[in-house]
Design a protein around this nucleic acid. Sequence first.
RNA 1: GCCCCCGUGGCGGAAUUGGUAGACGCGACGGAUUCAAAAUCCGUUGACCUAACGGUCGUGCCAGUUCGAUUCUGGCCGGGGGCACCA
Length: 855
Amino acid sequence: MTHYPHLSIEKKWQEAWEKSKCFVAKTPKPGQKKSYVLEMFPYPSGRLHMGHVRNYALGDVVARYKRAKGYAVLHPMGWDAFGLPAENAAIKHKTQPKSWTYKNISAMREQLKSLGFSLDWSREFATCDPEYYSQQQKIFLKFFENDLVYRKSSRVNWDPVENSVLANEQVVDGRGWRSGALVETRQLNQWFFRITKYSTDLLSGLSTLDNWPEKVKTMQTNWIGKSRGAKVCFKIVDSGQKQQNIEVFTTRPDTLFGASFIALSPEHPLSSELAKNNPEIDAFVRECAQLGTSEETIERAEKSGIDTGLTVVHPFDETKTLRVWIANFVLIGYGTGAIFGCPAGDQRDLDFAIKYDLPVLPVVLPEGECADHYQITDKAWTGTGSLFNSGFLNGLKVKEAIKTALSKLEALGIGEAVTQYRLRDWGASRQRYWGCPIPIVHCHACGAVPVPSADLPVLLPDEVSFETPGNPLDHHPDWKHTSCPKCNQKAIRETDTLDTFVDSSWYFARFCSPQAKDPVDSVAANAWLPVDQYIGGVEHAVMHLLYARFFTRALKDCGLLEIKADEPFDGLFTQGMVTHETYKDPDGNWVEPVNVLRSETGLTTKTGRSVTVGAIEKMSKSKLNTVDPAAIIQKYGADVARWFVLSDSPPDRDVQWTESGLEGAARFVSRVWVEVLRISKEPVFTDQKTTTLSKDLVKTTHKTINFISQDIETLGFNRAVARLYSLLNDIKKSTGLEPEQISARRFATKSLVLLLAPFAPHLAESCWETLGCKELVAMTRWPEFDEKWLEEKTLIIPVQVNGKRRSQLSVAFGLDKDELQSLALKDPDIIKSLTGLSLKKIIVVPDRIINIVAK
RNA sequence: GCCCCCGUGGCGGAAUUGGUAGACGCGACGGAUUCAAAAUCCGUUGACCUAACGGUCGUGCCAGUUCGAUUCUGGCCGGGGGCACCA
């Protein structure tokens, strides 16, 4: 077999592409269509992982295809370079976040380049470049001016030993991950983006996103969480409290007669008030605070509560009172931070009621149940039905009862219809060093004062100390000390930095004009935005994508982004993960795939210890089941790695990395190369007619061109790969020596090479050159197919009896129902199958199927 | 806990709008080539029954709609993603 020297070949073409500048984005010419292809930019963790290879290989197929179709293509790359890992690395390795980050970027840039992606490197930037974050500071100030960002007090996880705020992932079982200290919660003044201003718009905008996965739109819809309901006032009986009423939000005012208690969030102002004079309540509220701020933890914790001793009057029945509890499952951030508990109609309320022996009165009777015997035991009924045990609502269906209850509340002046959103304003303050400084100065006299534009950017200090616990910016010797821009008195810089989601909320716009003096140049933005195809992990389905959608709207409203489009990403694709088997040695330690040997007796480590195979999981450092792309590229080449991640698995599903699959990919690359060498040695004939001798291969080629184009447009790359395999097989089977056969073979092979280019670009260039073509494939147009080759003249139609295939007819395309029916009934196999049965019905779908129903 | 998604041979997967389930690849098996092996090439390969023709079952499980369900509906089981300070 002829060896395919991937290392030298791949380098050669990467240099040729760079020299020709064919991937540098050129502004679309008049009348030329544009395509902005973007993959979510990587966090520079230090090394590329297979997830990156897959992500960028997917995008590269689209970018190369669009370029070949004549589009002006923007396909940029950058670095999501701020964030927590750099600080953790700095602490662990005694380095500085800045040098660590830029070193990682260099390493990863080289790795990306070795994969031969068709990226426009001239637009590269990192979000930690002062040029980038200074533009972001301008945006922040513009938002400040337009009341899109503000400060308020909010709760954080606090590690009392590290003296710092903890991310939810840093809280493990209620303790700080490094210190092991019990986590507290603290109130801090923090900066918030007013994303809720756009709640309705972000929601309605989703319906215009036809090229987004339905699941992502559903997730965002649920995240925004629009719900219609009622605010209801419960009057506190003889309270002696300052507060006379408790206001609750409910989507089910129809179930008010089933109310058995009121529950307040532990953070509700009334809870805090009561805690002051009651040590037990105080202890309970503190205990709840130890759960941290994660909604998941709060909701998964066992329901618990404390009776405050207060009672309220039932709004519809003054003779009834309800106890007021404080409960750990009531969230302060949603509604009013207080609920009425209807155990029969809500599982959480029911669990709570059972635990504390509170009354359970069913009020919604499911259809088909008898009111006299219907009981709720351990399963709440949240479905529809008619109301009972509910005074004036009795007999009404749920929907009508909600309306009726609402009107009554409004008439009584103790409630009103409200629309509530689950979406909260975006808390963007981080008490950390490695992020974009917030350009604000705090002055005793003037308050929070924006840094004047002449004084921008507010640069991060290059060197900071992580010796002292807490925010390095806060205890930097001089950084925060400044003077007030208004009154010139001594003042303190804001030491919070911005959430890294801010950086990624507008980078796609910056790529249009990465050197512009303003955040986004409007001419460039209009030329390129929106992003036509955005590709990334589904883990970003809600937050990153919602924040970017919000930023697009906010930037437009502030005049910083002048584009026609309302949405930043026209097409979105969420790719699956790269998984791998996990391995363990007899001591239960994880073993890396490279250290696992396959022998006849099973799997062993290199030192001869037996290895057991565990679950197939997402490649991760913790499970040591990663495969290093660099090693794969070195051994097999970039094209093999790319081909593998694009083969077999649909891009939106997980792909399992296997050695054998990789070998298969390598074999394919060799087979193409060998085949092209064979074809290249054949004589070249021009103007050959196609007759029956060469018809099949020419037809297959035209069909393949059509299919692969469709597969790429619909991002079905695994299907395209399967078709490339097929076409290669057909070319290999073609061995005829007549000139027209040789000619057909050359046509098919040249088409194969062009179709292959988006998937294995280096291989394609080599093959193209070998076939005697002078121009780069990267600059060659996509092959055209001829419609006339796609038409089918005859086809095979299955004939079923009672839904089971019993025969088939080979017929001309387009035969009508009657003809098909009579043909089917004349078929000997069908006659045999029908003996002893009488015909009931015949279903004929022309060009598809015939089904005879008989008894 | 809540929201969302996924489930097809030994494996990854294919299958226009509900219309022949298993394309293509991997693995396995058999053969060719070889002193031998690797590589390569050719063939077979869902399960069960049958000497064969052929038949029965079969798309996580259980129901339903339909002439017909991998595809639509409801319930269940299993796996994954997100839950607001990881990115």
